[in-house]
Amino acid sequence: MSSAEEAFHSMQRLIQVLWPSFIVAGLAEVAFFTLIDPQELYLLGEPVHFSTLATYSIGFFGFWAICITSSWATCFFQRRASEINGLPDGGEVSGDRQSGCA
């Protein structure tokens, strides 16, 4: 792989992890805060004392972080045996994995 292609692959992988988690985090955020008033939340036994906007924002990034972990784990488990073994796979592309997702 050329270095340009490698850069492209890691960029692609990055977006494949970040973007779907962004969408899902957005949905989770809307669902969660429609049902739950941020003023009624407790953090470590104390009522949350952040401003409402801060709670929403932190909530969003919390959801995003969780979703990123999940997306990343999906990509991680999609790696081919040869990639884990670190052996050359003879250029064969097995169909069990989307290219660029490692």
């Binding site: 340009a4 292609e5 850069a7 492209f8 960029m11 692609q12 977006i15």
Partner: peptide, 11 residues
């Protein structure tokens, strides 16, 4: 030319 700023998703 795979300029990196343009290669967000594909070359």
């Amino acid at each position: 030319v795979p300029v990196v700023e343009d290669a967000l998703y594909e070359v």
